[in-house]
Write a protein that binds this DNA or RNA. Structure first.
Length: 911
DNA sequence: GAGCACTGC
């Protein structure tokens, strides 16, 4: 091990790095995979004494596995115990008093900043893999730039080291707001084996899967031993290619029958016609950029012929390993056959862990390993023994519409950096080759780097975290790359309507809306919500769930909504008739179980969220056995994650609200009928901006509105997803977890809402009419407020909503009603006995001619002067002045009673 | 009547 370490190129840079760290508060270290920076830099710092005096060297990683693995590796290299070199991730850690080097995920450090803004335990913080630009990394760098200067002022300097695998660091160095003086950048060589890159001469306009198939066949038939790694974009593609390859190179049967191959190809073409049509559409949009005919954009001298010639030179370097020359369809048959069986394995993130693990095993004796993977293999997982990479050049990414929040999945070209990262996977153990299924001209049109995540997704969760750190003006925060203003505004608006931020005052609203919008302070509710490590909409649900014993259920639902893909993928193409029968049976079983878990009546109205609750409840009841998951189509990994998240949320709720005394009950009973109703309301309150209404009189509309819903922000019809238990139910109002655009706009995670709940639970989205006279306003002794009935309409879309009882709106009329109830003795019962002696009827307060009577006028004025339109305000006024309102009240009663009233004033013992 | 890449608290 020590020998291995000595080979690392970074060791010759130790002095340069340590001098830079000594002289500068912030240092950037750039070195590709294989430079050893992650394992070595912490050791340099340790040896230089940066963890003396009980302080710690912190290292953040963007993934949990990396944090755990790195801590173990560094402990071993340094011959130190894991008590000294430790890790901390979301659910677990082995940090002790002795810990000096602490590896953690970036989110963990962000939480620590919430507890101790100055991070006083640390003398150095290393942000690893900063080039990946994950949202937490970006926010950490922004925060740390401030923490570094605060610590310098206190003469307790903190060192920040940003480590990046690429040289794309201008966002850090050229950003004056982030670092006033640009930090020094130290480059470290890497010790990778060379990878020869081969471009296709032509770029297939569609069917890159077929192109992958042909390329793998050729590599396998023509080239020496060594694993093959193929990059595709999704699960379905991965499975299809695996199947084709297995048929082409069956184990123990080396010769692939050519016609079989053809037939398969036709079959697949049929089957995936739809998805190809979509892919074609996506490609058509980008076609102008990649057209091989538009050479006019190239510099002079790089015309058609030159390019071909240049390519040929390039390819000549690849010598016998170059496969492009055989691109004329004469593959297979006449080529020399290696007769080597191909060991084909799929790999993607949602694949069961035991199946993922197969790619790390050596392939069976006498076979060649071929892994067909999605992007997981680009950064998250490293497969040993790969010598050949086949890269389709595409990636599937989630795309959010900034205005509507609708997400869709799009297949686009990767960036140059990603393509290089993929190529690098061929050079981990020996020199390798990368076959790119696109031309070098197309490659040169790729974006240089993928855009930072923070610019591609909603940011309400980040904004809430920042507000909890008392960063009010988020636009002024030194983001390495700032999110769009629309995204920031949308986040603040959502947080305001959830009650997590204070709404700007009405006066301000008129004047300087934009400015005040982006600097709203956090509310007490917002602080509570920020302690729950889930999306703000879900945090709101938790904050509401103390009532009626709903917490354990709300926690479970929120945990299940947070963990992705509860149900296993059963739609994959079957490899055999047996598998097909099995898949069909399992799909039927899952559909049946979903209906069972949804139940009947109000329970069914909770919809897909009831299914989540039922599934988790049943699974936990079974002890979360792999068998239970298997037969019911649940992903064991998802269920275990939900269990851990329930534990974490339970702890979080208990610490906000110790009297709840919650625990995770594996034998949780189903919620009662009334609890389900409360849960439905809790869910409605959290998902208020995700409300949809069944279209009215749809028979009059275009056919495209059949079974459709309307939402406030979308003009197009949206639909309940066919996998939803409410698919055929079509309730008048629903809330949904998300809308995904595929062939249509589909709502997923759907729950039914009663119309009368909307104005009561989502008042901030409703525009209310004047208070109704019938039923008349009343006084609520519990709230100490005047209530009334009001009709309303839902914002933007103007959906009419039924009149419901709400607080009487602020204004003169509210004082009048309150005065009346006060005189009637409803507010303070000790005043009730005087009622018969009043000189005027209390309802006089409400009459339009009330001003004719001085006693109504003076009472009203006195109430308005202290803003006393409810009991609490009145009590507050009496705390300041116990004689408050005495004279005004006495004006309503005969002189003879005044002395006794004065003795018993104020008429309450609640002060 | 369907088809979603990848991650962190």
């Amino acid at each position: 091990m020590q020998e291995e370490r000595l080979k690392l190129p970074i060791l010759s840079e130790e002095q340069v790095i340590m001098e830079a760290v000594a002289e500068h508060p912030v240092v950037i270290v750039c070195g590709e995979t294989g430079s050893g920076k992650t394992t070595q830099v912490p050791q340099f710092l340790y040896e230089a004494g940066y963890s003396s005096d009980d302080s710690i060297i912190g290292v953040t990683e963007p993934r949990r596995v990396a944090a755990v693995a790195m801590s173990q590796r560094v402990a071993k290299e340094m011959n130190l115990s894991q008590r000294v070199v430790s890790y901390q991730i979301r659910y677990e850690g082995n940090v002790t008093e002795e810990t000096r080097i602490k590896f953690m995920t970036d989110g963990v450090l962000l939480k620590e900043i919430q507890r101790d803004f100055l991070l006083s335990q640390y003398k150095v913080v290393i942000i690893d893999e900063a080039h990946e630009r994950s949202v937490y990394t970006d926010i950490l760098i922004g925060l740390l730039s401030r923490i570094v200067s605060l610590r310098a002022k206190r003469l307790l300097p903190l060192k920040l080291i940003i480590m990046s695998a690429t040289l794309r660091v201008e966002d850090f160095t050229q950003n004056q707001r982030l670092f006033a003086t640009p930090p020094p950048v130290i480059k470290v060589e890497s010790r990778q084996f060379p990878v020869t890159v081969h471009f296709n001469k032509r770029t297939p306009l569609e069917d890159y899967s077929g192109e992958c198939f042909r390329k793998v066949c050729k590599v396998h038939r023509l080239l020496p031993a060594g694993g093959i790694l193929v990059f595709l974009t999704g699960q379905a593609e991965v499975h299809t290619l695996c199947r084709r390859l297995r048929r082409a190179f069956p184990h123990a049967r080396p010769r692939p029958p050519e016609n079989e191959d053809q037939k398969d190809s036709v079959e697949e073409t049929q089957k995936f016609k739809k998805s190809r049509a979509r892919a074609r559409k996506a490609q058509a949009a980008t076609l102008p950029q990649i057209s091989l005919d538009s050479y006019s954009v190239l510099p002079a001298g790089e015309g058609d012929e030159d390019r071909e010639a240049e390519m040929d030179d390039e390819e000549a370097l690849g010598s016998d390993l170059d496969l492009d020359l055989a691109d004329d369809g004469a593959d297979g048959g006449e080529q020399p056959d290696a007769s080597l069986p191909l060991h084909v394995l799929p790999l993607y993130s949602l694949l069961a862990p035991e199946k993922q693990a197969q790619v790390f095993q050596p392939p069976p004796e006498g076979t060649r390993l071929c892994v067909v993977a999605t992007n997981v293999a680009e950064t998250s997982l490293t497969i040993p023994g790969i010598k050949y990479v086949v890269d389709c050049g595409k990636v599937k990414k989630r795309h959010y519409d900034r205005v509507t929040g609708v997400s869709s999945f799009r297949i686009t070209w990767v960036s140059q950096a990603s393509a290089d990262q993929r190529a690098g996977r061929a050079g981990r153990t020996e020199p390798g080759h990368c076959y790119r299924l696109y031309s070098s001209a197309v490659f040169s049109d790729f974006e240089q780097f993928p855009p930072p995540e923070i610019t591609r997704r909603p940011v309400e969760d980040l904004i809430l975290q920042m507000k909890a750190l008392n960063i009010e003006k988020v636009v002024n925060f030194p983001f390495p790359t700032t999110p769009s203003v629309e995204a920031l505004v949308a986040a603040e608006e959502l947080l305001i309507s959830l009650g997590a931020l204070q709404a700007p005052q009405k006066a301000e609203r008129a004047k300087q809306l934009q400015r005040s919008r982006l600097s709203c302070p956090i509310t007490a509710l917002g602080r509570t919500m920020a302690t729950f490590p889930v999306a703000p909409r879900y945090a709101k649900m938790l904050a509401l769930s103390r009532q009626h014993g709903c917490l354990p259920y709300a926690i479970t639902i929120v945990a299940a909504m947070t963990v992705r893909e509860l149900f296993a993928e059963l739609d994959r193409p079957a490899a055999s008739d047996d598998e097909l029968t099995m898949l069909k049976a399992r799909r039927a079983r899952v559909a049946h179980m979903k209906r069972t878990w949804a139940g009947q009546g109000t329970s069914r109205s909770l919809g897909d969220l009831m299914v989540l609750l039922g599934a988790v409840g049943a699974c936990e009841y079974s002890g979360c056995s792999p068998q239970f998951c298997e037969t019911n189509g649940l992903r064991l990994k998802a269920m275990l994650e939900i269990r851990r998240l329930r534990g974490q949320l339970t702890t979080a709720v208990n610490s906000v609200c110790p009297e709840a005394g919650l625990f995770v009950d594996p034998k949780m009973q189903p919620p009662s009928e009334s609890q389900v109703t409360y849960l439905r309301q809790i869910v409605t309150a959290g998902l208020g901006d995700h409300l949809a209404r069944r279209v009215q009189s749809e028979d009059l509309l275009d056919d495209k509105w059949r079974n459709a819903y309307k939402t406030p922000l979308l003009d197009d019809p949206v639909f309940i997803h066919p996998s939803s238990v409410l698919f055929k139910e079509l309730p008048d109002f629903v809330v949904y977890q998300e809308i995904v655009e595929t062939s249509k706009l589909y709502m997923k995670g759907v729950s039914a809402v009663e119309a009368q709940w909307i104005p009561a639970l989502l008042p901030s989205y409703c525009q209310f009419d004047k208070p109704l006279e019938e039923p008349p306003p009343s006084y609520c002794p519990e709230k100490g407020r005047v209530l009334c009935h009001r009709a309303s309409v839902f914002y933007r879309v103007g959906w009419p909503l039924p009149a419901v009882q709400v607080d009487f709106p602020e204004g003169l009329d509210c004082y009048k009603h309150f005065a009346r109830f006060l005189l009637e003795g409803q507010v303070f019962p000790t005043l009730a006995p005087h009622r018969g002696c009043l000189l005027s009827s209390p309802t006089t307060m409400l009459k339009t001619w009330a001003r004719l009577q001085p006693r109504t006028e003076i009472l009203l004025r006195a109430l308005v002067a202290e803003r006393a339109d409810c009991r609490d305000a009145l009590l507050a006024a009496w705390r300041k002045n116990p004689k408050y309102l005495l004279a005004e009240y006495c004006a309503w009663l005969p002189q003879a009673m005044h002395a006794n009233i004065e003795k018993a004033w104020p008429p309450t013992s609640d002060l």
